[in-house]
Design a protein around this nucleic acid. Sequence first.
DNA 1: GGCATTTCGTTAACCAGGTTAACGAATCGG
DNA 2: CCGATTCGTTAACCTGGTTAACGAAATGCC
Lengths: 147, 147
Amino acid sequence: MPTLAADPTVLANRLRPVLLKLNRQLRREIHSLGVTGGQVALLVQIKQHPGIGIRKLAALERISVPGMSKFVSRLEEAGLVQRAPVEGDQRRVELRLTAAGQKVLRSVRSKRTAWLSARLHALDPDELDAIDAAIEPLLNLLEAEEA
Amino acid sequence: MPTLAADPTVLANRLRPVLLKLNRQLRREIHSLGVTGGQVALLVQIKQHPGIGIRKLAALERISVPGMSKFVSRLEEAGLVQRAPVEGDQRRVELRLTAAGQKVLRSVRSKRTAWLSARLHALDPDELDAIDAAIEPLLNLLEAEEA
DNA sequence: GGCATTTCGTTAACCAGGTTAACGAATCGG
DNA sequence: CCGATTCGTTAACCTGGTTAACGAAATGCC
């Protein structure tokens, strides 16, 4: 039974190693289609914000602009996204999924063979609920600093 | 309100981006003393298992043996850990914290200025409880595959 | 005792995922 | 029309990993 009214600093020290190890595993989830978790996240964002630019996308994903430029280049080389010039502003670029990108996204979403999905299947329903309930608070952790 | 009896695959797809972004932030938590979260985790393990070898440590942290060797080398160069020869087996090494390593660990543990700690302080008690309650299930996710 | 096998750690070479610094081109505002 | 800003790219660099190959030491066995 977890301690109620957890001390934030103590909680941080317990949470950190868990996140660390989970992400080490997730990094290896470079599954079948050759796309990493990070790349999938990018595809999702582009799908949800068609025509978005590098800069906004970088902000959404919380990485630097040059970093985003590089990742998008990789996705473009892989044929999953398309850089299109913006009408009336030749500095900007509009990003969109290609047909191949959409296909990848569809097939990834239903994938149950990925490490995380497989491990979650092994948990009890109440454990799943506990994780489920933590997702929003964890998201709030990130949104807090957008202010 | 989170969905009860969450579908593991759906939950995985919601969880992944959260973990991804959290870890991107955590990576920048290279605070004052110049040690990263991963390095702190290592120091903690060495403290809890004094005299542990590279191989076991690598298994505990779920990374490869050569990777661990490299990280330990860095920590040794930084003067935080000490490689000592093992009595009666000259292949092995025993790892121990130096005084400096213990000092770093003490000062890190109480640090409330780190990003994660600061953000957690901004959450409601019930959100903290939700996160707290999710830690064990998340750990189980990792332990499951030790079997 | 001697030799094959296994165990332990290191090194080298490589890749992904970032970062900051510097820049060039285009747009915008006075 | 010119200075300042905005957008994206490139280059150089770092951390955190990986696999492959290896050398030295210990173990098992005949």
